[in-house]
Every structure is written in C-alpha cells, then in structure tokens.
Amino acid sequence: MSETTKTGQGLSPEDAQTYSGWFRALADPMRVRLLNLLAEERRPLTVGEITGRLPIGQSTVSHHLKLLAEVRFVLPERRGNSVSYEVNDACLECFPAAVSAILGRRP
C-alpha cells in the first residue's frame, strides 16, 4: 500500500490500479472457486489435480491460473515437467485491507 493510502488522502493511482486488477481477476466465478480450492487445500496443486476437482477442462484451468498468477493471487512452481500452483498467502492477506481502503475504512 502506498504512503498516500496510509495518510488518509484517498487511494493513490497506483493502489487503484492494483486493486482494480485484483477485482478483475476475481470477476469470474470459476476463478473464485479455483482460488478457494487452493486456499482450502493449503498445498500446491497441479492443473491435473485441479481439473479432477472442478467441472472445467485443463486449458480453461490453465487460463484462469495464468490470470490469477498475473496479480499474484497464486504462485506457480515448476516441478520437473509440470507446474504446481499454490495460493499466495501474502497477497491474500492484503486483500481485506484493500477492500477497507476502497470503502474508506482505514484501520
């Protein structure tokens, strides 16, 4: 969070840009479910494991993971020939504070 946000002068342009990217990434219900699956599992999952638990195909899961990784909600980790994804706890801890800042509720 930038210094402008912390001083109570509204959201900085940088924070607004970051937060809007987060909300765009969460604008699809399947991405929300995918993020929830990774958060509840608390361990890295491969695309194959994810497709076994959600009603979507491998290419769609990969697309959603790419979008979630771009905003750092998930972290990819290459393991041999496959990639596993896990939730980024640091980024997700910032999300409630971002919502509060957007709504003008500073801690």
Results as ranks from 00 to 15, higher is better:
residue 40 E to L: 14
residue 4 T to H: 09
residue 61 V to N: 06
residue 75 L to V: 13
residue 62 S to C: 03
residue 84 S to G: 12
residue 69 A to N: 02
residue 17 Q to M: 11
residue 101 A to L: 03
residue 5 T to Q: 12
residue 60 T to Q: 11
residue 46 T to M: 04
residue 22 W to C: 04
residue 48 G to P: 07
residue 44 P to W: 04
residue 2 S to C: 15
residue 25 A to N: 03
residue 77 E to D: 14
residue 38 L to A: 05
residue 96 P to G: 08
residue 70 E to V: 07
residue 91 C to S: 13
residue 93 E to D: 10
residue 66 K to I: 08
residue 72 R to F: 08
residue 93 E to F: 14
residue 55 P to V: 04
residue 8 G to H: 08
residue 51 T to M: 12
residue 6 K to D: 01
residue 64 H to A: 04
residue 106 R to T: 15
residue 68 L to H: 01
residue 80 G to N: 07
residue 106 R to Y: 12
residue 99 V to L: 15
residue 69 A to E: 00
residue 80 G to K: 06
residue 57 G to Y: 03
residue 25 A to W: 02
residue 58 Q to V: 10
residue 35 L to R: 00
residue 100 S to V: 03
residue 90 A to C: 04
residue 81 N to C: 02
residue 62 S to K: 08
residue 10 G to E: 03
residue 41 E to M: 00
residue 1 M to H: 09
residue 79 R to L: 13
residue 67 L to A: 09
residue 43 R to G: 02
residue 58 Q to D: 14
residue 79 R to K: 15
residue 4 T to S: 14
residue 104 G to M: 03
residue 3 E to L: 11
residue 85 Y to I: 05
residue 87 V to A: 15
residue 107 P to T: 00
residue 28 D to M: 07
residue 73 F to C: 06
residue 2 S to G: 07
residue 82 S to V: 11
residue 99 V to Q: 11
residue 93 E to G: 06
residue 90 A to E: 13
residue 84 S to K: 12
residue 9 Q to R: 15
residue 25 A to C: 06
residue 94 C to V: 11
residue 35 L to H: 02
residue 26 L to V: 12
residue 60 T to H: 09
residue 46 T to I: 00
residue 46 T to K: 09
residue 69 A to C: 01
residue 10 G to F: 06
residue 91 C to Y: 12
residue 70 E to T: 09
residue 78 R to A: 14
residue 40 E to W: 04
residue 59 S to R: 14
residue 96 P to E: 09
residue 77 E to M: 10
residue 63 H to V: 10
residue 17 Q to Y: 10
residue 9 Q to K: 11
residue 55 P to F: 08
residue 16 A to R: 15
residue 76 P to E: 06
residue 84 S to P: 01
residue 65 L to A: 09
residue 36 N to C: 07
residue 6 K to E: 08
residue 35 L to C: 08
residue 43 R to F: 00
residue 90 A to Y: 02
residue 63 H to K: 15
residue 54 L to P: 01
residue 22 W to Q: 08
residue 32 V to A: 09
residue 40 E to M: 09
residue 63 H to M: 13
residue 88 N to Q: 02
residue 10 G to N: 01
residue 99 V to N: 02
residue 82 S to M: 11
residue 41 E to V: 08
residue 22 W to R: 12
residue 35 L to Q: 01
residue 4 T to P: 01
residue 45 L to Q: 04
residue 40 E to S: 06
residue 86 E to D: 13
residue 93 E to M: 08
residue 34 L to N: 05
residue 95 F to R: 03
residue 49 E to C: 01
residue 26 L to P: 14
